[in-house]
Simulated assay, not measured.
Amino acid sequence: MDRMRADRLLSLLLLLQNRGRMTAPELAAELEVSVRTVYRDVEALSASGVPVYADRGPAGGYRLLDGYRTRLTGLTGDEADSLFLAGMPGPAAELGLGADLATAQLKLRAALPAELGERSRRIQERFHLDAPGWFRDAEPVPHLAAAAEAVWELRVLRVHYRRWRGEVRRELCPLGLILKGGIWYLVARVEDTVRSYRVSRILAAEVLEDVFERPAGFDLAAYWEESSRRLESSRFQGEAELLLSERGVKLVPMQFGAVGAEAVAAAGPPDDRGRRRVVLPVESLPVAVHDMLRLGTDAEVLGPPELRSAVACAVAELARRYGAPKDDTPGTPPNHDTPNGAGRTVHDPQETP
């Protein structure tokens, strides 16, 4: 019997043990096989001495003899690895561990006492982790499996990578994978430096036969925390003084998150027109101009002068492009009832150019 079928028979057995009576279509859906395959697998289990019974009628289905419990619940290496992704079935599937995770969960539940098994089932029914942010499609990561293989086996990974400033070819020593906000990053050593690479920007990848030695004491979580801290500290390069309308005061926390909320909380009192002065941390000048334009007419940039001038130039260019039609018919005013849902401009903690 090949391993694939053996694994499927074990999964079928564990499903009946964990859930009780199940119909052939239900088993086929869980195992992703045909109903006819389920019939053959049930016959194989019965022939091997497993007490599987078929109940006829509308409420019928397959079930195990009352009190029967298998002890074949030992986890394989891949199944044990997959348990660390138990709350993230999507990422587990991207790493090629989806089937291993499902089997590992079945085995774990089968080994638990009935009461704890029922508690685990309720938790799985009532809590779900959805890692990616809103309004963002999952990035294609065709080379994630190759990166994961290199990480597992400590093999050198040759990549063709797209940076902001051009494409490069490098040989990496992969140390780990990070899933941040639905985006995969590969942490790898290049010569004597550890850097982060966005997996979706890997244009080609080849796992080489060369192996490498993992740095002694390297802590992936600690590296990522420190890297993220450095990114945050270097992200803001100045401050913008804004005059916000009442609606702008509400928009800034929505558009800029915690930084915007803190800026609004420290704002001065409203003037006679309900406008408030806010000092908002900003990134580089091009990014800051983009951010100010997103606030539209609900914000006026008071300073610094170079930012105000850059925004004025951008607005003038937009006015030139979207000027009134030649017949001078006024355009339809924009609808300001719904804030712009576009995502923030984010600098990735990727390789330093």
Results as ranks from 00 to 15, higher is better:
L177P: 02
T193L: 05
W184P: 00
E239I: 14
A222T: 15
L203T: 06
V211E: 12
E191A: 08
L177N: 05
R198T: 10
R195Y: 01
E241L: 15
R170D: 12
L220F: 05
S233Y: 12
A222S: 14
L179K: 03
L208H: 04
P174T: 09
V194F: 01
G181Y: 02
F236S: 10
E191K: 14
A240N: 13
Y223W: 15
R230P: 06
E225W: 05
A216W: 05
E213Y: 05
E191W: 01
D192W: 07
E206N: 01
E171V: 07
S228M: 13
S228I: 07
D210E: 15
R170V: 09
R201D: 05
R195A: 11
I183P: 00
T193I: 09
E171G: 02
G217K: 02
E232I: 12
S200F: 00
S200G: 06
R189A: 11
V194M: 08
Y197R: 03
S233P: 04
P174Y: 07
G176M: 07
G181A: 04
R195E: 13
W224G: 03
S200C: 07
R198F: 00
E209W: 03
L203Y: 01
S228L: 13
V211M: 06
A240D: 11
E171N: 10
L179N: 14
L179Q: 06
F236C: 10
E232G: 10
R229E: 15
E232K: 09
I178Q: 11
K180I: 02
S227W: 10
A204I: 01
S227Q: 11
A205I: 03
I183S: 03
V207W: 09
L175I: 09
E206K: 09
E209Y: 05
L208S: 11
P215L: 11
Y185L: 02
V194I: 15
R195H: 09
Y185S: 07
S234T: 15
R195C: 11
W184Y: 08
V199W: 00
E191N: 11
V199F: 01
P174H: 07
D192A: 13
